[in-house]
Design a binder for these strands. Structure first.
Lengths: 136, 136
DNA sequence: TTGATAATAGGAATGATTATTATTAGTATT
DNA sequence: AATACTAATAATAATCATTCCTATTATCAA
């Protein structure tokens, strides 16, 4: 399928992009929807999903498929890794350079043709670490 | 919460475990359900989910949270990586040793307390590679 | 202005998973 | 063996994120 991608920047698209760029919290579609609604009260959740998809396909933003069930979005389209809080789901950037040589180790060792990899760190954010410590 | 884990091996549990151990295909809960049904026609999908969870908590099997929406299960509870086909979702083991030093690079560089990481390779399985090649 | 195309809002539908509940099976104690 | 107790089950309902559908509206080109 040739998958024609539209590149028109509608008001909805611009608004979503602006809101995403104002945050470092890697929000979910639903969180973005709640924010956008303050500026465009009539926007629909479906529009948010579709436009996040479009913006990701345009390479302007990045769709994150991390552990857990929900997808998150990152204003930074460049490849980088993330840390996810196992307690509250919060996501932060992982300050580590991309491992570009990883795929090489697999050449010849697998029948799959390898495109890339996804790496994600798991841990606890400061808030949840503190909360756990208080319990004891 | 202390979360008491039962360790009783019921017939359903044994059957699920056996079926999982007979395959290397990292099946989803639904696929396991379909297989188990041939031996225990009256088993319910909920039982399959619950027992897969129990077996994973017992450390006997491993629950995989890979990219995409569905969870898959692995009879091998030891830490190892996987390759996922971007086309059909098939999952295979990745013949590469665990990267135990990865977390070290983040110490002091993040406010999160790090527990571990998840690494997953993406690519195309032989079947899907072939199919794609034929299209052109 | 008119048609063609793309984007939208709103809501319905889907799909995987989890929760609920009444019932049954298993175990230990007398 | 009868009892009481707990855990596990089947069946189904509920949930939650996401995708799909449809009628309407906006945008652009001729």
């Amino acid at each position: 399928m040739p998958e024609k991608i539209s590149r028109r920047m509608t008001l909805q698209r611009k608004t979503i992009l602006n809101i995403l760029r104002q945050t470092n919290s890697h929000p979910s579609a639903d969180e973005i929807y709640e924010s956008v609604r303050k500026q465009l009260p009539r926007i629909s959740l479906g529009t948010v999903y579709r436009n996040l998809e479009v913006l990701a396909n345009m390479g302007i933003i990045q769709k994150l498929e991390l552990g857990g069930t929900i997808k998150r979005f990152d204003w930074n389209p460049n490849k980088h890794y993330h840390i996810r809080c196992l307690c509250c789901g919060k996501v932060d950037n992982a300050p580590i350079a991309p491992l570009n040589k990883l795929e090489d180790e697999l050449y010849g060792a697998t029948v799959f043709s390898i495109i890339g990899h996804r790496l994600e760190f798991e841990g606890f954010c400061p808030d949840c670490t503190k909360r756990e410590a208080q319990k004891t």
